[in-house]
Design a protein around this nucleic acid. Structure first.
Lengths: 211, 211
DNA sequence: TGTACATCAGTGAACGCGCGTTCACTGATGTAC
DNA sequence: TGTACATCAGTGAACGCGCGTTCACTGATGTAC
């Protein structure tokens, strides 16, 4: 942001100042409004009120733009999971696992535009180091908690199987919710309620007995 | 297929004979090779060796083409689930539910191109009656089996909650497998093995006690 | 404080491309008589 | 069996469009002295 900003703020400065983050935000809006297939560099630039050549200074190409958007999504997912655990004051493995599931689904419902890009991921570069790192920040804590659960005697099954199952159930629920299937089939209107019920059912079933 | 087909089969007849099903098959190939975003009427027509105006005689427009492809997917999904139940000679609710889960995942792994179009479903017409009917053929049996399970005393939880959870876990597992996440994280190489483990874990947990 | 200059960030024209849809057309088929 | 004709299915030209990428450019910033 320029120090010498004139009193008349409608005079647009030649340099945008925060173009990178603005472009990512516009990507999100376009996906939310019209779907991933509609995202184009030119439309993103148009919404940011910048020439369509400008994004090239921040993202090598279209794939780079979408990959950066997915990375931002992973960062936010990791944050949401952590803050959900903290807000629930969860400490035991069942409490933590349930909070993680709720955080994951919460993120998907609140950030459908990120979730959609992060997951099938046709258009993004899965080799990108920032992408790999951000993705690891999400999966690491899940593995940690199931290992801890096993160590503390909460599990009767292989911890990696439990991790894969936990991830699957919450991912599937989020994906089906976003595509409108859960609402259509069960008449559910509140994602939080069904997320809570499903995660509770799963955690209670899998961690029923403490050795 | 023309009765008066000439001996020289390389002479292409003006009428294709089975263009509709050929076009759908080409859609599948394109998605498998390059992703949903790459499907275009012109490319589909090109692969079917037909002019790009021809598809309009079978599908109103691009959305109609993709919707028809999704409908075909739902039909195959319902068939796969039924035949998996039959092949396993499953009769009790836990056996049937587990077989349904395996069938669902089997379908996704074997028909990723259909699965990808059927689910986020950005590009398809969810109001299409054929679409709604085909989709119902898949969900109906799931509701039937959880209701039966409840009636026979296998469930401690609300049957619709169990149905939503079952669908979620198997859908999430399939989606994560198709996006390569499960393989990357667990080192699993055989989808059947992990599908079997996950469905068993779920069914055994949820239907543990018989009232 | 002032000046020169390198670097950064955004411009806008140009390129070549593939797309969806429409439409007048024509070859092939099948049916009525 | 033969003929007329309606209907069906595929053709290919034309339309207008938005796209990604490149590139010589210029305005703005910031740093060295």
């Amino acid at each position: 942001v320029s120090r010498s900003r004139p009193a008349n703020r409608s005079r647009r400065s030649y340099h945008h100042g925060a173009l990178r983050s603005t472009l990512l935000e516009k990507v999100g809006r376009i996906i939310r409004e019209h779907g991933v297939g509609v995202v184009s560099i030119r439309e993103v630039a148009r919404r940011a009120r910048v020439s369509h050549g400008a994004p090239a200074h921040h993202f090598r190409n279209k794939s780079g733009l979408l990959t950066a958007f997915a990375v931002q999504g992973y960062d936010r997912l990791a944050d949401t999971i952590q803050s959900t655990i903290a807000a629930a004051r969860a400490t035991t493995p069942p409490e933590v696992l349930e909070a993680m599931g709720r955080g994951y689904a919460r993120f998907a419902v609140d950030n459908p535009e990120h979730f959609r890009v992060m997951f099938p991921g046709d258009a993004i570069d899965q080799q990108d180091p920032a992408y790999i790192a951000a993705s690891n920040r999400c999966f690491g804590p899940l593995v940690d908690i199931v290992r801890r659960a096993e160590h503390e005697g909460y599990l009767a099954d292989d911890p990696m199987l439990v991790a894969a199952s936990a991830w699957s159930i919450v991912h599937g629920l989020a994906a089906l919710w976003l595509s409108g299937r859960i609402q259509a089939r069960t008449g559910a209107a509140d994602p939080d309620a069904i997320v809570k019920d499903v995660t509770r059912l799963f955690v209670a079933s899998v961690m029923k007995t403490r050795a």
